Computed example of a mutant assay.
Amino acid sequence: MTAPARVLVTGLGGFAGRHLGPAFAEILPGATLLPLGCDLTDADAVAVRVREARPDACLHLAAIAAIGVASGDPARAWQVNLHGTLALASALSRHTPDATLVHVSSADAYGRSFAVGMPLDETAPLAPINVYGATKAAADLALGAMAGLRVIRLRPFNHSGPGQSDDFAVSAFARQVARIKAGLQPPVLRAGNLDPERDYLDVRDVARAYALAVDRAQALPNGTILNLASGVARRIGDVLDALIALAGVAIAIEPDPARMRPSDIPHASGNAARALDLLGWSPRIAWPRTLAEVLEDWQRRV
């Protein structure tokens, strides 16, 4: 099969999108990445862009991705994450029916299914417990039922790396640690619940999975669902302790009620055996390296 030459990417300027260049250079060096370049929630503008771009594949990254941001403005989260996704899918099915949509969903859609306490595979029920997870689950299910569209659905677990905003736990910790080390705030770090365990990936490994999925999109069965996970659950408090140790400074940790989420599930991890089988993908970057580079990035930024 011919490799995709023109790849329309939503969210190309976002956190994961900014890491796509090296991944595509390795896996699909002949591909041109085309930004959407319009408001995802403007269905007419999306249709015009799809018609003009004539992509061979579309990688859909754009979303209201932070749980707190989505919860703070649910209407916007539903508009972008569900209705924007459906506008894109509709435009692709009308104007480029041979193109495959590689949709980036989220492991947050599994929600209460994590209560089993073991790594989930793609057969686990979607049972979201927050607005973000609900919007991603709705889009995931809607695309799975949409006729006239080739779609591959990816469900990445938590990922971090250089360039991430502090709306996410690891990056928020690293920012505070970097500010303390630079003398910009007292040596006290405020944090939410540190007991939950999460399955963390490096964003560059995730970007490589996206490139592999686009490369093999035509060969994969329509409707394929793939988890992207390490299979290892790390306690959030241990992640914070590791960042503090990397910084080499004494820091007191205080609870921050504003960051406490009662809906937090104790343990979340994923089984990505199917991604290994169908894409040849597994994480390459060791977690200690990710943490070190997130901290270095924040030390430059502060």
Rank of each mutant, 00 (worst) to 15 (best):
A89H: 02
I225W: 06
I129M: 01
D241L: 11
A139H: 05
D297E: 12
T96A: 15
D42S: 11
T41P: 07
K136D: 01
P262K: 13
G223M: 03
A138S: 08
A53K: 06
A247P: 01
G72N: 08
A247I: 04
P196H: 05
R274Y: 11
W281Y: 11
F168D: 00
G144N: 03
L295C: 10
I225P: 00
H103K: 10
T10C: 14
S230Q: 10
T85W: 14
H103G: 02
G11K: 08
S160N: 07
A286S: 08
A191W: 01
A63D: 02
G223F: 03
Y210C: 11
H19D: 15
E296L: 10
D42W: 08
D297R: 05
A142L: 05
R235P: 03
V239E: 00
A99S: 14
Y200W: 15
G68C: 10
A91I: 12
A25C: 11
A5W: 14
A25P: 12
A209R: 01
Y132A: 01
R274W: 09
R94H: 12
D44F: 13
V232G: 08
A292D: 13
G68E: 06
I64W: 00
Y200P: 14
T290D: 09
S263D: 15
P186Q: 06
L226E: 12
A70Y: 03
A191I: 00
H159A: 12
R179F: 08
L36V: 10
D297I: 02
V116R: 15
V206N: 10
R261P: 00
P266C: 09
S282C: 13
V294C: 13
L276Q: 15
A209F: 06
S171Q: 02
P257L: 03
L201A: 03
A3Y: 08
V131E: 01
I225Y: 08
Q79W: 07
T290A: 09
S263T: 15
S230W: 09
T85E: 10
L295E: 11
N227S: 09
H83N: 15
G117F: 05
E197D: 09
L33D: 08
L34P: 04
L101A: 06
G68S: 07
E197Q: 12
A53S: 14
E197L: 06
R150W: 00
G133I: 01
A292F: 00
G280C: 11
V102K: 00
A63H: 09
N81F: 12
E293I: 07
P125F: 02
P128C: 02
T135W: 06
R6Y: 14
L154D: 05
V104H: 01
L20K: 04
V170I: 03
G237K: 00
Q218E: 15
N271C: 12
V177F: 05
L243H: 10
D140L: 07
L220C: 06
I27E: 15
